[in-house]
Every structure is written in C-alpha cells, then in structure tokens.
Nucleic acid binder design. Structure first.
Length: 587
RNA sequence: GGGGUCAUGGUGUAGCCUGGUUUAACACGCUGCCCUGUCAAGGCAGAGAUCGCGGGUUCAAAUCCCGUUGACCCCGCCA
C-alpha cells in the first residue's frame, strides 16, 4: 500500500510524522513561489505545501490541475500562528511535500465536485462516478453502509439467520407488475424478479429456520416517485412462534440500535395508533406525528345546524371536522384562504368553511348561518384564541379524511409549523383484513393476501368479511411509511378461505401460491414479520427528500439509467436464442 | 394513462411576460501569463453558446404560437 494514512485523518497528533497520502487535487493554489494543494479522499482533505526549494517536487506540482490523482510524501507540520484555518477539520496542520507523483491526469470535469449549486440531476446521474466524489454523497454512502452493517449485526445478535432468496423466480400476478426475464432453455417461459421475498421467507419458517432476515433487493415495474425506484432494498425479516408484540419489540430494538449507531436517538416503545384513529385525527394512514396539529370532530356541535351545507351532509350520514391554527389570522390573506379551498377541492371536497377569530368574535362569509351557541361550543372544542383561524370541512367520512389530511399537511407547510420532536415513529395497527372491489365484485387484501385475521374475527369471514380485523401493521416515521408487516396465515385451509374471498379458486391459488400453500399444510409454524424500506430509512437519516440521493446508481423518472444507458436494445442473436420477436419498438 | 414545472457556453443562472440598442449578460470552471502563505487565493489577458429539437407567425424570434424529445414533481399505479 502506497498510502500511510487518509487525508481527513491528518491532524495534530500526527505532527512530526512522515506520511504518504494519495488522493485527488481538490483545489490548486499556485502563488508563483509557494504552492498549495488541498488533497482530497473519501475522508476529507488536507493542505499540502510545496516549497520552491524542493525543485523536483515543485516542477511536478506546477503541472497539476483540479482532480488529478496524486501521491504525496512529506512531513506533517503544525501551521504557524495566523496560518491556521479553523473552518476545516485539518486546519491546524499541513503536509510539506518531499515528493509529488502524478498517478493520473483528469480532463476538465463537466461540473465542480464541491459545488454548492444544484447541478441538474440528469447531469449528475450521467456522470455519477464524479457526483459520488461530492462530500455529501460520500456521507450518504457511508451512512448507508453504517446502517446496513448495524442492522446485520443486530439481527445476528438476536439469533436471526441471513438467507439469500432467489432473484430469478416466478411471476405472481398479485400486486405490482413484474420485471420479466426470458428463459433461453425454456422458450416462451419467463422468470420474474421478486417484488419481495414474501413467499420464500414464509417457506423458510415452514423449514424451521425460526428467525430469518435479509437485506433483499425487490423489483417492481411501476412508475417512479421521489420515494420509489424500480429496484429497492428492503430489510426483510420473519419470525416463528411470535405475537405482534414480539415483532414490534424486535423492530423497535432494531430502530433504536440503528439510530444510536449514527448518533441519533429514537424513543421506544413506539406509539400504537389504530388505523381508524389515524384517519380520523390526521387524515392519513401514514401521519407525520412530529406535528401536534389534529383534525377535530365537531359533528355534535352542528347536529341541529340550519346551515344547509352541514344539514345535508349530516342527513347523509356524513361528518363535520375542523383544523385550528393559532395566531394565523395575519398570515391568511384572502388569496391564501382561496389556495386552501382549492387544495381541498382538488382532494374531493365541495368547499371549505373558514372562520377567523378576531376581536373576540368569529368572522367569515358563513358566520350568519351559525348560532351563538354553536360558536361558543366551537371555541371550547378547539380552544380558539384571539388571532386563530378555523377550517371546517363537511363530507362523508372517507372523503373528509382525505382532504382534511391534505389540508393538515399544507397548513404545516404554509405556516412553517415547527416540529414538536425530531423523530416521531408510530405503529399503525388494526387495519381491516379486506377491502371490497365493487367493479369486480370481490374482496381484496387491504395490504397483503397472506395476513392473518384476528382470531376472534374468523367467524366473520362467513358473515361480514369487511368487519374482519387483521394482524397487519405499518411502521411510520415522520410521515414516511417505513415498514409493513403482519402475523401470517400458517394454516392452508384458512389461507385458502381468504384467497377464495378474493375470488381465487382452489385450483388457481394452488397454481399461483402452490409453493407456499404446500409448505403451510406440512407443519408450518405460526409466524410473522415485516419488510422495511431501507432506502427510505437511509434517506430520512441523511435528511434527503429523495431516495435517489442514497442509492449509488439510481434510475430516472422514466426508469432509465443515463450512466449505462439502460434499458437498451440487444443483439438479434440474443433475441433469437430466446425465441423473442420485437413487435413494437420505440424510436 | 393524466396534470404541473423546466430546457440559454463545460456547470449554475439572467434575458423571454412587453419581438428589434444583445456583438446573448453574470458567476464558477477552462487556457495562457504574473505572483513566496493561500485555503471558494489574487491580478491581467483569452477561448467557449446559431438559446433542447422540428414547424409556424412576422420585415425581424432565445423572446409569441403549435408540435416533439428529455429531466424533475404529483395523480393514477405501487398486494
């Protein structure tokens, strides 16, 4: 190894030692006489000085340009008084070069490595090998590594086995679109890339593995978003003979360990919030619990309202709900209020009632329809104070939740409300097992077709399937759906019964889920687990809005990679071997 | 499949609304020269864009209109 140390590690204790450093020329400052280089590697950078007295080294150094790769040997010196740079970690020392060797030159790069400016993502991805030199990306990749190692260590310590499941597997038409891989040996047949290792991990439970985990790649051929890529990494785990409490304890322990490993703190146990409450109080199944702002049900107050809008909604079995923001009268100009109205309309509302509380009374276009009694009750229910603004929506419960949730998010953003805490994790529990698809006249899994119903609700499968509760849960952190899991069906008959409600016949189920169903009837133990979005977790801890920032080589919104120019056409010979003909090609 | 935003030297932007006084501006980067203490070094000089692409309107288009391509964000979709 040429190198004796990393640039970022050259600090005070090394003063007086000789070091050999390798790295990139981050900045080159030639003063005609003395010459300075900021030498950079993964760990940071350190100043190298080349004195004119050292003629040989100086001659080499004069040829340097930004991003040349060099090897420098020399003594670590303390900087003289007045030459110390307090803004950088290595600012108290510098390396006085004995020798400078150019290992490689560099063309002038398409963008600056250390720029604060936003280089377009297109350019960054095309030159990702340069983008990854940026300190922020180095930090993100380092964070990702640290999280992965900590997670592996945590599961290992808790008796889990890491087992790899196949990437080439079979298509399961449930869920997202599959990525398909044609078979050369079996013409006309295709492998599919797994959307998740779900069936394999359940099969592993049947094998008696007892505790399994994997940092698993999962593939879904659906349109992309800031938090969705065609391939993503999930922390996948499954355990046998457990209750929800056991799974939650492992999940919370993992989060606590992981956060601690990167200098953060997350409190356990996590709050458990029933799905219905999440929808009512926050208008979302993934509420951002950092903010205390809550939707309040005020249906009772307006039960006898003469306001036609409210009365009609109530006759129809609807609800009236409110959001209240203190000291916001001045912020809500007429146009700002119109913006809020437009927002809820875009989310399904017919309108939005707003009331400003000014000079000890409510103001707004609809005040004439309300009684003093109603105003008083409203003031008490929402704890309205001078300068506050009340937003009221009335609709069917489902619609109301949807747009009041959207309004809650917008109010937080618009008023720049400060979060009450940095990390706000919550388990969302008590999801219904099934939803109903009217167009197809069938039930569908609310989340995952392998989720077990709550034991005492099993009889309801025959009488009122929509009332059946499930052992399904989500882990939500700061409004991001991080993980999803459940206790599974471990008996074939019950699993088949549920699949039948989704209009899968026995024959069809056997065809699609045969491996799993066969394993279930051969002594599969009770089991459950979760899959956690590793990219999303990393993005949260890096403070990034998009998971692209924590994936080394991500895809663009159109699922392509500017760096490798994938996807791309293939040779005719390859197609012929696979017995594939292209019938419709782009361009 | 739908909606929105954007596209100007290598990079990031201004100019566009209100077409012509623009030889398309600025910062960074790049090239050359000068300079012995800078650290986002400094000084001087210079190169580099037919304004994503195609069509239209006009005496005249970076600027107005239509189409198209690409990027990003969102809805649908994502068990």
């Amino acid at each position: 190894m040429k190198r004796t140390n990393y640039c970022g590690d050259i600090k005070k204790p090394l003063i007086g030692t000789k070091q050999t450093l390798c790295g990139w020329v981050n900045s080159y400052r030639n003063h005609g006489g003395v010459l300075f280089i900021d030498l950079r590697d993964r760990t940071g950078f350190v100043q190298v000085v080349i004195e004119p007295a050292n003629k040989e080294a100086f001659a080499v150094a004069e040829e340097l340009r930004n991003e040349y790769v060099i090897c420098v040997s020399g003594a670590v010196n303390a900087r003289k008084e007045g030459y110390v740079n307090k803004n950088i970690p290595t600012g108290e020392v510098e390396v006085v070069a004995d020798t400078v060797e150019i290992l490689n030159t560099s063309i002038a790069l398409p963008f600056d490595i250390n720029t604060d400016k936003n280089v377009s993502e297109e350019i960054r991805l095309k030159y990702r090998y340069l983008d990854l030199r940026n300190p922020r990306m180095v930090r993100n990749m380092t964070m990702r590594h640290r999280l992965a190692q900590t997670i592996r260590n945590y599961f290992d310590k808790n008796g889990f086995l890491e087992i790899e499941t196949p990437i080439l597997t079979r298509s399961t038409p449930e869920g997202a679109r599959d990525y398909l891989v044609p078979s050369r040996v079996h013409h006309g047949k295709f492998y599919a890339l797994p959307q998740s290792p779900q069936m394999f991990k359940q099969t592993l439970m049947a094998s008696g593995i007892d505790r399994y985990f994997q940092l698993a790649r999962a593939f879904r051929d659906e349109d992309l978003r800031a938090d969705r890529q065609p391939e993503h990494t999930q922390v996948d785990m499954e355990m046998s003979f457990v209750s929800l409490d056991d799974i939650f304890a492992i999940g919370e322990g993992m989060m606590q360990t992981v956060f601690k490993a990167v200098g953060e703190e997350i409190n356990t146990p996590f709050e458990r919030l029933p799905y219905a409450d999440a929808m009512r109080r926050f208008g979302s199944d993934k509420p951002d619990m950092r903010y205390t702002l809550e939707i309040v049900d005020i249906t009772e107050i307006f039960k006898k309202s003469s306001f036609k809008v409210f009365a009609d909604v109530l006759n129809d079995g609807g609800v009236i709900r409110a959001l209240y923001t203190a000291s916001s009268v001045e912020t809500f100009s007429r146009s700002a209020l119109d913006k809020m109205t437009d927002l809820v309309k875009a989310n399904g509302a017919k309108g939005l009632v707003w009331l400003k509380y000014k000079g000890g009374k409510f103001e707004g276009p609809t005040t004439k329809y309300f009684t003093e009694e109603e105003f008083l009750a409203l003031k008490n229910a929402l704890k309205v104070e001078e300068g506050g603004v009340v937003f009221i929506g009335s609709d069917k419960e489902e619609i109301s939740s949807l747009y009041m949730g959207a309004l809650r998010k917008e109010l937080i953003k618009f008023l720049k409300i400060e979060p009450a805490k940095k990390w706000a994790p919550v388990w969302i529990v008590n999801f219904p097992l099934l939803t109903y698809e009217p167009e197809e006249d069938r039930y569908d899994a609310a989340h995952n077709p392998f989720t077990a119903p709550v034991a005492e609700d099993i009889p309801l499968l025959d009488t009122n399937p929509l009332a059946v509760r499930s052992y399904q849960f989500d882990m939500v952190l700061n409004g991001v759906e991080l993980a999803s899991g459940s206790i599974r069906n471990h008996r074939r008959d019950l699993q088949e019964k549920i699949l039948a409600l989704m209009k899968h016949s026995k024959e069809e189920s056997a065809k699609r889920f045969g491996m799993l169903l066969n394993a279930l009837e051969a002594g599969a133990p009770p089991h459950g687990g979760f899959g956690l979005g590793f990219d999303r977790l990393t993005a949260l801890l890096c403070g990034e809005d998009s998971i692209k920032e924590v994936i080394a080589f991500p895809k663009t919104t159109t699922a392509s990679c500017p760096l490798t120019e994938s996807p791309n056409i293939v040779d005719d010979i390859q197609l012929k071997e696979l017995a594939i003909a292209i019938t419709d090609q782009e361009d």
